[in-house]
Nucleic acid binder design. Structure first.
Lengths: 198, 198
DNA sequence: CCTACCGATCGGTAGG
DNA sequence: CCTACCGATCGGTAGG
C-alpha cells in the first residue's frame, strides 16, 4: 500500500483551488491559504513566487487536462467519421475532467479572468482551440445529417456553458456520481443537437 | 422627445454592474467606480451606504426582474396545461432579462456569492423558487409525454446553466440580436427535452 | 461633492 | 517555516 504524500507546493494549490472556487481569487488572501495549512502567510512564499503564480499553476494544469483529454479523443480513427461518437466522447471527457478536480476546474472556468498579460492571452487562445473542437464536431454532424440544422457557434456556446455549469453545483458526495452525471449529459447533449419537437 | 436623466445613484449601480461583471465584486474598488464617474471615492458615499449595498441593489433589482417575468408567464391560463408553451416562454423571458441588462444579469448570476448574512440567504431562496419553475415545467412535460423521460433536476441544471451562460458572452453589438438568440435558445431547449437520436 | 484622514488588510521581502 | 516589517490600497468617516 502506497501512501501518497502531496508536496507542500501541491497542497497550497489544492487549498487555493478550493478557496478560489468558493470566494474567488480576489477575495482570497495568501493568509487565508496559509491559515488552512496552519502556517504563516509569509511562509507560503517559501513555496510560490506570487499569488498569481498559484492561480496560473492551477489554470495551466487544468487547461492541459482538458486539452489532453480532447486530443486523445479526436486522435481515435473510429471517431473521425462519426460526429455523434466524437461528441459523446468529448462531453464525457469534459464531465470527467471537471469531476476529478472540481475546485481546479471551477478556477479554470471562472477565475482565469484574474490572470494578466501574456498568461491571460495564452489561456484565452487555448480555450478557443478547445472549444473549436466542439464547434467542429457540431458542424461535421450537421454536414453528415446526424445533427439537426443549427448555428454551430450558438449550439457550442449553449452546450459548453451547460457543461461548465457542472463545476458550480457538483459535489463528490452528491446524489449522482460522476459517471451517472456524464451519462445524463451525453444524453442531453445529443438531444440538444437532434430534432424531435413540433 | 423625453430625455432620460438617470439618477446619480442609478449611474453608480450601472457603472458598478459593468465593473463587477468584468473584474468581479472583490476586485472592484469604490474608487474604481468613482473614477468612471469622474468623482472622488469618498463622494460615492453621498449616494450609497456601503459597497455591499450597491451589490445588493443590483442583485435585488435583477432578481425581481427574473421573478416578475416568470410569474407573468405561469399566470397565463393557456400555459398551465401546456408545458412546451410554458417552457418556451420561460426560456424566452430568461434570455430577454439577461439581454436587457447583461451587466446586472451577470452580477445576479455570479456575484451574489459576495453577499453576506441574510441577504445571501434570501437570494439563494429566491433563486431556488425561480429555478423550481423550470424543474416543474420539465416534470409536467415528462408527465404529459411532451418531453422525453429525464431527471428533472439534472435537466434543469443543464438548461439553466446554458441560459445563464449567455451573460458571459452576450454583447449588445454582437452578431446576433437578443431576439435571434432567444429563438435559438428556445429551439435548443425544446430539443434538449425531447428525443430523436439513436 | 470635496479634502483630509482612519484603522485594517493586502501582497510581498529581509533575515534568520 | 518563523518574526518583523514595508508601502500600497482598501472601505469608510468627519467636517465642510
Amino acid at each position: 500500500m502506497t501512501l501518497i504524500v502531496p508536496s507542500r507546493r501541491r497542497e497550497i494549490e489544492d487549498v487555493a483551488s478550493a478557496l478560489f472556487r468558493e470566494r474567488g481569487y480576489a477575495a482570497t488572501s495568501i493568509r487565508d491559504i496559509a491559515r488552512e495549512l496552519d502556517i504563516r502567510g509569509a511562509s507560503v512564499y517559501a513555496h510560490v513566487a506570487s499569488k498569481e503564480d498559484v492561480l496560473w499553476a492551477i489554470v495551466d494544469r487544468t487547461a492541459t487536462r482538458f486539452e489532453r483529454t480532447a486530443e486523445a479523443i479526436v486522435a481515435l480513427p473510429a471517431v473521425a467519421t462519426d460526429p455523434v461518437a466524437r461528441m459523446s466522447a468529448l462531453v464525457r471527457g469534459h464531465v470527467r475532467v471537471i469531476a476529478e478536480d472540481v475546485g481546479a476546474a471551477s478556477v479554470f472556468i471562472s477565475e482565469w479572468r484574474a490572470l494578466t498579460g501574456e498568461r491571460r492571452a495564452a489561456i484565452l487562445a487555448r480555450r478557443d482551440v478547445y472549444e473549436a473542437r466542439f464547434r467542429e464536431a457540431i458542424a461535421d454532424g450537421v454536414a453528415t445529417g446526424d445533427f439537426a440544422m443549427t448555428d454551430p457557434a450558438v449550439a457550442a456556446a449553449y452546450l459548453l456553458t451547460a457543461l461548465n455549469g457542472i463545476a458550480t453545483w457538483y459535489r463528490p458526495d452528491g446524489r449522482l456520481g460522476a459517471d451517472r452525471i456524464a451519462d445524463h449529459y451525453v444524453d442531453l447533449a445529443l438531444r440538444t443537437l437532434t430534432e424531435d419537437h413540433r
